[in-house]
Write a protein that binds this DNA or RNA. Structure first.
Length: 465
DNA sequence: TTTTGAGTTGTTCGA
DNA sequence: GTCGAACAACTCAAA
């Protein structure tokens, strides 16, 4: 988009329109709004260094753009072209199509660019000419495609406008939360453009090598933590792809594993494009009769990290405190909600949507449908994570649990993932009183597992009748 | 068109 | 302790 702006050689008016009402049922959640607030400030500062404004408006988007055009026009300036990056969420895509039509009818050119994907969904087809619904063939196909390499442009090549349209302040958008639950976010995130560059550099130089082994260990920083930057467009997947290739990490090993994760992000976005109702509805029709057992109290215990399973609770508390959760733990907590507690996956997706700084409609939807077993290329429903086994396997010393569940900080590793089995004197020595400062399990693992499998069997009967 | 093999990340049970 | 099979069938991709 900026390359095109430079090519056009005309003055540029960068605009951000805040229009949460145009996101359909999925306006940005609380954690997203926090990130957006800081990202906008960062962008504004970066543009200001080049003498460029960042004009902030409120939606409706069409009206905002028309007002800018008429304001410039009364100053004797003509808006010739509007450039924007394509969005793929169903509501945003419909909105953008509408904007495009209205502007073009007024004689304004519109150009839409792909900034957030490696390749447009329409360009990826299997041999039958259909979109892929299974990841592995998608991945094999994608990695063989010639992908555009990102072009670096010098921001100083952008021309400032002679007149700056009226703008609101970023702060007036009210993006920061009313209650200060975001207070510890800055300890974990730098939501600026500099932060994005830094995160990519650090990952490619220090961590990508050991990514394949370390990414599953929640107690260490073995993942890239690039997801929010990718979601917000502070990094593009092509830039990330190129950086991994430039480091010579793409063949086998950590880089390869990492790029396949970037491809999962891509796959999710393509799926959302082809299945626009998937955020609300199971892709496998059989799951539409699944006997979920919605229960406010169970959902709340999960949200608050009060299930009595240390790995689950650590994950949910990490999410609340930092706006992010380790990927391995996301699978464990999601499986627990959907299978042990039989809560509808949509409830989990909603909570993640509101609390993750990297909340992304496509990835979130695909991830939850995957865990619930109702997605396009999903884990089988009978695959039920055992939260204790997962803890012992991936957090053997309990480092992760100790960090986010300080009540268990002094528990010996042997029982940290199942404190209810610890001898009484060990609990006393560790300062743990089950049911007081740390809950007893809200459901027995074996019983939960059996109930989940029974629900699956019941659904199968419903399907037959 | 038909057939065949495969499909992100697990757990449990019994030999 | 280790290992393979069962856990469900089903749909997709490709030959």
């Amino acid at each position: 988009m900026l390359v095109e702006a430079v090519r056009l050689g005309r003055p540029l008016v960068p605009v951000y329109i805040h229009a949460p009402a145009e996101a359909g049922d999925w306006p940005p959640g609380g954690a997203s709004a926090w990130w957006l607030h800081h990202a906008l400030h960062s962008l504004q500062a970066e543009l200001a260094e080049q003498g460029l404004p960042l004009v902030i408006c409120r939606g409706p988007s069409v009206t905002a753009l028309q007002e800018i055009a008429s304001e410039l026009s009364s100053a004797g300036l003509t808006v010739a072209t509007v450039l924007f990056s394509r969005q793929y969420e169903p509501a945003a895509a419909a909105r953008d199509a509408c904007i495009q039509k209205v502007l073009q009818d007024q004689g304004i050119k519109v150009k839409v660019f792909n900034a957030s994907l490696l390749i447009e969904p329409e360009l990826v087809r299997n041999r039958s000419g259909k979109p892929f619904r299974v990841f592995t063939p998608f991945w094999k196909h994608l990695r063989a495609l010639p992908l555009e390499t990102p072009v670096h442009i010098s921001p100083s090549a952008l021309l400032a406008p002679a007149k700056v349209p009226r703008s609101e302040s970023i702060d007036s958008l009210g993006l920061l939360p009313q209650i200060a639950w975001d207070k510890s976010f800055p300890l974990h995130w730098d939501p600026t453009l500099a932060g994005a560059a830094n995160a990519l550099h650090t990952f490619v130089n220090d961590a990508v090598d050991s990514y394949r082994e370390q990414r599953n260990v929640p107690g260490v920083e073995g993942t890239s933590r690039l997801s929010p930057y990718l979601h917000w467009g502070q990094l593009s997947p092509r830039q990330v792809w190129a950086a991994v290739h430039a480091a010579g990490e793409q063949d086998g090993g950590g880089g390869d594993t990492f790029l396949s994760e970037v491809a999962w992000r891509e796959f999710a976005c393509h799926l959302l494009q082809h299945f626009p109702d998937s955020p609300e509805h199971a892709m496998k029709p059989a799951f539409r009769t699944f006997p979920w057992q919605p229960d406010e109290a169970q959902l709340l215990a999960w949200q608050q990290g009060q299930t009595g399973y240390p790995l689950v609770d650590a994950g949910m508390r990490q999410l609340w405190q930092t706006g992010w959760m380790h990927n391995r733990v996301r699978m464990v907590v999601a499986s627990f909600l959907v299978k042990h507690l039989l809560q509808p996956w949509q409830e989990g997706a909603r909570w993640f949507w509101d609390t993750l700084v990297d909340a992304d409609l496509a990835s979130n939807t695909m991830g939850w449908q995957w865990v619930a077993g109702c997605g396009a290329d999903a884990a089988p429903y009978f695959r039920i994570f055992n939260p204790v086994t997962q803890g012992e396997k991936f957090d053997p010393q309990g480092d992760y649990v100790r960090r986010f569940v300080p009540q268990l900080a002094r528990m010996p590793a042997q029982f940290i993932h199942q404190p209810w089995l610890a001898p009484q004197e060990m609990l006393v020595a560790a300062g743990v009183t089950l049911g007081k400062n740390y809950p007893l399990p809200i459901i027995d693992h074996r019983a939960g597992r059996e109930r989940a499998l029974a629900a699956l069997a019941e659904n199968k009967l419903r399907q037959r009748n």
